[in-house]
Design a protein around this nucleic acid. Structure first.
Length: 466
RNA sequence: GGCGCCAUGGCGGAGUGGUUACGCAGAGGUCUGCAAAACCUUGUACACCGGUUCGAAUCCGGUUGGUGCCUCCA
């Protein structure tokens, strides 16, 4: 299994520390609002990685955090985090907001068929671990305290700029966010923020340094190391996390342990809608509900995600979602052939499903080349559209199961048509044998109303869902 | 201002130094009771300008355009 590693900027073989177990941490959502399609792109891509790891015989232990506190907003209203802001917007407490959107997110995972992570830890459930981490950093001399919080001194970590290959001197020039002038270095970041004086936050905790809340980089280090140990095999996140969040995670984790936080770093690229990044102000934050309201299935959306490579900046549009939806219908028709097995004397050319499976596995194992994997599936859908011969039934079923395991397109979730529908199809066949075209066409109309189309092939009538 | 990334046929989107990616959509045809499907044919795809090479869409340089990040963000 090869995967691009941001550490070395090259595609590398994944070699877990304790094969067959492979530990993986992915940066999850901040639960202050509905996730948009871009977020789901990323989460689905994590899922493809997990599924592929499992398919090549590894046993993934997957941690995805839920950030329910601590991210500062970019606006001038300093000291307030997104949860608090969301709470004020909705007239609820920050705790209520976090609960609502956290639950929504977890439910959404199964809606787009993302595997259940081994752990879904929340930042607010790990305050003590985060405080402990700050204490250790303090003992090792990496921290200093100013008026609004305890900060990490990035100058004490010489490798700070290496991971993201930052040019610290140059990039300060155009930074658009104002820094607290008390900070020693522009890149220094808060480990613990104090509650603003005279105001009560919904979310605040006591600490050795005063009442407040953890800085937002802290949770991933604390929870990652708690569940996966000091060095994990894979750490993944959105590409936006590379220069700041992950850079800071490495700084604060490795300063304490002296060991690499992760052996492999994966970054998923962002998508654009109408050529622009997704953002609230542009009003292009499409949600799963929007997709369903337009009549598309979330499985079609999932297929759309797989149609591009995770490292390229892909586009989302309703046109391409429709293309994916049509493509999925073809795949579904392929899967439905398992209900329409023929035992005709005439032998079909048997397909080498094992070979196809290996080809797909090879594509996915090569830095998650999902477009190539789908190319192969389409190849088979084009090849095997007439019938499945009973002699290849087992191999076919095994192949479909493999596809579902690795791509998660729910091809085996469809059920057979009803007995009544089967009788209709049989009656139509009889009518056709008698050249009673009027009766035959009438039955075809009835089936059509039930969402079934029929094709008359050399191997009999094949139905498919329209 | 700094650091990146990308430019592929109507749309989406892979890939490769010389061979049809693929998907969706379109056109013509064969077949079929009619359909549908399938099959065949078809659009002369790789931003522009140079360079390297026997040969580049694929490597190098430049130009143009787009886009992302620079402590909110998947």
């Amino acid at each position: 299994m090869k995967l691009y590693n941001t550490l070395t900027r090259s595609v590398e073989e994944i070699q877990p520390l304790h094969t067959p177990k492979v530990t993986m941490y992915t940066c999850g959502p901040t639960v202050y609002d509905y996730p948009h399609v871009g977020n789901w792109f990323t989460f689905i891509r994590y899922d493809v990685l997990v599924r592929t790891l499992a398919a090549v015989g590894l046993q993934p232990e997957w941690v995805m955090n839920i950030t329910d506190v601590g991210h500062l907003v970019s606006d001038a209203d300093e000291g307030e985090d997104k949860l608090e802001k969301g709470a004020r917007r909705e007239g609820k407490s920050a705790w209520d907001v976090a609960k609502f959107y956290g639950d929504y997110f977890v439910a959404g995972l199964s809606r787009v068929n993302i595997s259940q992570p081994t752990h879904l830890p929340k930042a607010t459930d790990h305050i003590q671990e985060q405080i402990d981490l700050v204490k250790q950093l303090e003992e090792k001399g990496f921290t200093y305290q100013i008026s609004d919080g305890v900060y990490y001194d990035t100058a004490k970590f010489p490798r700070y700029a290496d991971f993201a290959r930052l040019d610290l001197d140059e990039q300060q020039a155009g930074a658009r966010v104002e820094h607290n002038p008390e900070k020693r270095n522009a890149t220094d970041f808060a480990l613990w923020k104090f509650s603003p004086q005279g105001s009560q936050r919904d979310m605040e905790w006591d600490s050795p340094w005063g009442k407040g809340f953890p800085g937002w980089h802290l949770e991933c280090s604390a929870m990652g190391m708690k569940y996966l140990g000091e060095t994990m095999d894979i750490h993944a996140g959105g590409i936006d996390h590379l220069p700041v969040h992950h850079t800071n995670e490495i700084a604060q984790s490795e300063a304490v342990t002296g060991k690499p936080l992760s052996r492999h770093w994966m970054h998923t690229n962002h998508i654009t809608v109408n050529g622009e990044k997704i953002s609230k102000s542009l009003g292009n934050g499409i949600t799963l509900e929007d997709i369903e309201q337009k009549g598309f299935s979330l499985t079609a959306f999932r297929l759309h995600v797989l149609e591009s490579h995770y490292r390229s900046q892909s586009k989302f549009s309703w046109e391409s979602l429709e293309a994916a939806s049509n493509r999925l219908r073809d795949y579904q028709a392929l899967a439905d052939l398992r209900f329409q097995v023929v035992t005709a004397d005439r032998q079909l050319t048997e397909l080498d499903y094992e070979q196809y499976k290996q080809d797909i596995q090879a594509a996915l194992s090569d830095d998650l080349n999902t477009p190539e994997a789908l190319r192969i599936v389409s190849l088979i859908a084009n090849e095997r559209h007439d019938s499945i011969h009973h002699t290849e039934y087992d191999a076919f079923m095994e192949f479909l199961q493999y596809l579902d395991d690795v791509l998660g397109l729910k091809l085996l979730e469809s059920s057979d048509i009803t007995d009544d529908q089967k009788k209709l199809i049989a009656r139509r066949q009889t009518a056709r044998d008698n050249k009673d075209w009027a009766a035959s066409d009438k039955i075809r109309g009835e089936l059509s109303k039930q969402g079934l189309s029929v094709r008359d092939t050399a191997h009999g009538t094949i139905w498919y869902r329209s």
